[in-house]
Design a binder for these strands. Structure first.
Lengths: 249, 249
DNA sequence: GTTGCCCTTCGGCGCCCGCCGAATCATCGC
DNA sequence: GCGATGATTCGGCGGGCGCCGAAGGGCAAC
């Protein structure tokens, strides 16, 4: 691979970093990870079909990703379920994807365009909400004084009260930051992530405010969800062919 | 490379992400980027010697990294200077390095061990301070109420006053967050980054509180630097073979 | 038990990629 | 001008890696 000695190398972690990056340096593995960004567990076969590779190929990739610590696996019967190892892993992949050169290739077919629009409107990003909906919620919270962005992202006292009022209980303060900014993938704008972002997304799913569309990351806002968004944040549905976007009331 | 069709691929950015990750998936390129984490410009030859590869090899790697947007170059005469493209690039590399499996391989030779210790004590991380010194400063600022970590990293009002008192002027609020948490590489603990972290590092260099050791990232605290650290943060030098570590007074 | 599905292992193929050395170009110092 | 130094281009080599298909194992359903 290279000359044996590295006299001046002050840190030996060059190969380590390369090994980690190498896990994501393959198109198929990258597609796997992007699909897993929805935070759910996929089977090996699902991932293989999604990426268009043979099952044996998917197995080899999953072995690498699990051995590298990016994925965790869970065997159930004849199925092999894999998911992202943790929030830090998801954040890493998301930040990589956000730095990717933005190539706008409009989808060819009509259903593909519809799927694309659904993804752009509202989706989950590992464990929190993203897309136009996630950005709109974040903006509304900011303009109502629930979030403070003067020095990075932070939640205000009014924000804490608001969470309790809505019925969302933030997770106990562990190592994970409660509030984190996640750069959106399609919107190119920051939105709310971290422990509170995850709690809000979980609550929205539990309360039936949003539902998953199909098997992917895309979500749709329900009738009850629009009412809740209006009552708590003043958001109303953007007029359009299908509800999903939002704007400030 | 793979089957042509990707019917179910909802996002076409799999290959894009792989291409970006592929830039860091080589040991030599990763070493380049880690060396460039000191935020300074290196010549192609310096990087080649540091990594132990031929000059022609270094040229090819630099072409890839520049074309990929991770590095920017600057030609001066017969020299080709390269540096990291920006703070976001540095943050990406740093977060990748932080997620690397921690392999503690004690250096063989005595001078290598000394260099290693110097790096662990105090170094620059792109544009802010890291190592034991960076963590100690961050901890001291936190315990004195200048930083608030309850909801991510944020600077308090007392912190803003303290900056003015010390003579550090934070940069104007642009897109870059003023306060950011950067996970340290050797300490495995967060330390202060972002615009204010950069301003503090710059001020410490300008005021002669710290000086660079050799050509790398390592820095040493001067006499005047220790006095300033004591006066402003109550830090004193850790007793040891060479000053550089710090502890709370 | 038998069948079918999901996953895994293995061999083999082809391509890409990182490396080098030699030759060439560009620049600086004399 | 001339040599020295730094950087680039080019050809060629070797290895690693991603892909597949066929065969085998494990589990669930019947």
């Amino acid at each position: 691979m290279m000359g044996t000695m590295n006299r001046h190398a002050e840190d030996s972690s060059g190969p380590d970093l390369a090994a980690l990056a190498g896990l994501l340096a393959d198109g198929t593995r990258a597609r796997f990870c992007l699909a897993l960004l929805d935070g759910r567990a996929w089977t090996a076969g699902e991932l293989a079909r999604m990426a268009g590779v043979a099952a044996s190929t998917a197995t080899e990739h999953l072995n690498l990703l699990v051995a590298g610590g990016l994925l965790t696996e869970e065997r159930q019967g004849r199925h092999r379920y894999v998911r992202l190892a943790g929030a830090d892993t998801a954040a890493l992949i998301e930040s990589l994807a956000a730095m990717t050169p933005h190539r706008r290739t409009p989808p060819r077919s009509l259903p593909a365009a519809a799927r694309r629009r659904a993804l752009e409107r509202a989706r989950t990003c590992y464990d929190h909400l993203a897309g136009a909906l996630g950005v709109a919620i974040t903006d509304a919270m900011t303009s109502r004084g629930l979030l403070d962005w003067t020095h990075g992202a932070a939640i205000t006292e009014r924000g804490t009260d608001w969470l309790a009022e809505v019925g969302i209980s933030p997770p106990p303060a562990t190592g994970r930051p409660l509030v984190r900014s996640c750069l959106d993938w399609t919107e190119r704008r920051p939105h709310l992530a971290g422990g509170i972002g995850a709690a809000m997304c979980r609550h929205a799913l539990d309360a039936g405010w949003i539902t998953r569309i199909g098997t992917g990351r895309a979500v749709a806002v329900t009738e009850a969800g629009w009412r809740a968004l209006h009552d708590h944040l003043g958001l109303v549905a953007e007029p359009g062919p299908s509800s999903g976007s939002a704007r400030s009331a």
